[in-house]
Simulated scan of single mutants.
Amino acid sequence: MMVKIYSYYFEELLFKFAFGEENGADYPRWLDDEAFPPLSPRDAIKASRVVVATMLKAYPQADPQFDSCALKRSSESQSGWWYYDIDWVVWPPECDGSDRSTINVPVLLNGQVPAFEVFSYQERFKAWES
Results as ranks from 00 to 15, higher is better:
Phe66Tyr: 12
Ser77Trp: 10
Tyr59His: 11
Val51Gln: 07
Ala53Pro: 04
Pro64Ile: 09
Ala53Glu: 13
Ala58Met: 08
Pro60Tyr: 12
Thr54Leu: 05
Ser68Met: 11
Pro64Phe: 11
Ser74Lys: 10
Arg73Thr: 13
Arg49Asn: 14
Ala62Pro: 03
Arg49Thr: 10
Gln61Asn: 05
Ala58Thr: 11
Ser48Glu: 01
Pro64Asp: 04
Arg73Lys: 14
Ala70Thr: 09
Leu71His: 06
Gln61Arg: 10
Arg49Val: 04
Gln78Trp: 06
Arg49Glu: 15
Gln65Asp: 04
Ala70Phe: 12
Leu56Trp: 15
Arg73His: 10
Thr54Gln: 05
Asp63Ala: 03
Gln61Phe: 05
Met55Ile: 08
Val51Ser: 08
Ser75Gln: 03
Pro64Met: 09
Met55Tyr: 12
Gln65Pro: 02
Cys69Val: 08
Cys69Pro: 01
Val50Gln: 07
Leu71Val: 07
Arg49Phe: 14
Ala62Lys: 12
Pro60Trp: 11
Val50Cys: 04
Lys57Asn: 06
Lys72Pro: 00
Cys69Lys: 00
Glu76Ile: 13
Asp67Arg: 09
Leu71Glu: 03
Ala62Arg: 10
Phe66Ile: 14
Ser77Tyr: 12
Ala58Gly: 00
Ala62Trp: 05
Tyr59Trp: 11
Arg49Trp: 15
Leu56Cys: 08
Ser77Ile: 13
Asp63Val: 12
Ser77Gln: 11
Val50Trp: 06
Gln61Val: 03
Ser75Met: 06
Ala58Tyr: 07
Lys72Glu: 15
Gln65Lys: 14
Val51Tyr: 07
Ser48Gly: 09
Ala53Lys: 14
Leu56Gln: 08
Leu71Ser: 05
Arg73Ala: 15
Gln61Lys: 05
Met55Leu: 12
Met55Ala: 01
Arg73Trp: 06
Phe66Lys: 02
Arg49Lys: 15
Met55Gly: 00
Leu71Arg: 04
Cys69Met: 05
Pro64Ser: 03
Ser74Cys: 08
Leu71Gly: 02
Ala62Glu: 09
Ser48Ala: 13
Cys69Phe: 02
Thr54Ser: 03
Val50Asn: 03
Pro64Gly: 01
Asp63Met: 14
Ala53Trp: 13
Phe66Gly: 03
Cys69Ile: 04
Ser74Phe: 12
Pro64Cys: 02
Leu56Asp: 04
Gln65Gly: 13
Ala53Met: 13
Gln78Glu: 13
Leu71Tyr: 05
Val52Met: 10
Arg73Ile: 12
Leu71Cys: 09
Arg49Ala: 15
Cys69His: 02
Glu76Ser: 15
Asp67Ala: 14
Ser74Asn: 08
Lys72Phe: 11
Val52Lys: 04
Ser77Thr: 15
Ser77Leu: 15
Pro60Ser: 11
Glu76Val: 11
Ser75Thr: 12
Tyr59Met: 05
Gln78Tyr: 10
Lys57Cys: 01
Val51Phe: 10
Gln61Trp: 02
Met55Gln: 07
